[in-house]
Design a protein around this nucleic acid. Structure first.
Lengths: 136, 136
DNA sequence: TGACTGATGCAACTTAGTTGCATTATGATG
DNA sequence: CATCATAATGCAACTAAGTTGCATCAGTCA
């Protein structure tokens, strides 16, 4: 029994077809996916899952720390595996996405802001936008 | 005739009641506003403006560089005056927003990424989330 | 004071995301 | 292996964000 299965079962959660399929889709993609992209991918695999279930599953995976949520300001959230700490560069023309690992330590900036503003900072969102080599 | 009026007229744009009211609302607020907040503010001023007009006006103001668009991942975009270069800390509980001016030069990071990824980077989005002093 | 055309309102629409409720099925237990 | 509690699901109906087409209105310039 793999690690994830164990984690789920120990918390009273079940291993279902949709859960397996959605986590698998997220783990295989190299860019964050919207709900409609995930649904398209599910139907390609002949897995029938209602959209409500997809939303609920994603909420669940984010809460469990298995998936991460990003927002490129497109009017729909995107989801990806949460295993890496990175940001993205998005081509505003072709929507190509590449991962970016910052050189600078944002955590230090967060501590400074927390100190100055009296906030407890839990997370941040940082995405870069522009044109990729082929769209330029 | 003020500077903005001049700018508008020179480009063939007109000074209308909605345009004046919306730019005024944005200039007076200390936090970015959603379309529905702007509409609420408009009706408080007894200015009747259709929601379509508000959307079109905001698109216009962003295109003209007068307003800026931010997205806190709430499912609705927010708009603010575009005069300052800053980011935000958002309290996830009470939605209080404070401006943040970064100490670190993001532009340098952008240049590094552009170089490495072959992108031309035009802009970025950076927001911090957490709990404010009173919500903690 | 026209007339050109930018701005507006209305209706109708698309799409993202949510909620309530009845039903199904996973997996722990005896 | 059968049972059962409840996690997960599907469906229908809904809310809210944002968009489009088109006829009409109203700033602005000459």
């Amino acid at each position: 029994m793999d690690k994830l299965t164990k984690k789920f079962r120990s918390r009273g959660h079940r291993i279902t077809q949709s859960r397996l399929a959605i986590t698998d889709i997220l783990s295989r993609t190299d860019k964050p996916l919207t709900v409609s992209e995930i649904r398209r991918s599910l139907s390609q695999r002949k897995v029938t899952v209602d959209k409500v279930t997809v939303y609920r599953e994603l909420t669940f995976l984010v809460r469990e720390g298995i998936a991460g949520e990003v927002d490129f300001g497109e009017g729909a959230k995107r989801f990806e595996s949460a295993d890496r700490d990175h940001h993205h560069v998005v081509c505003v023309n072709c929507r190509r996405v590449e991962d970016v690992v910052l050189r600078h330590d944002i955590a230090a900036e967060e501590r400074r802001i927390a100190q100055k503003k009296g906030f407890t900072i839990t997370h941040h969102a940082l995405e870069f936008f522009g044109l990729c080599a082929s769209c330029r």
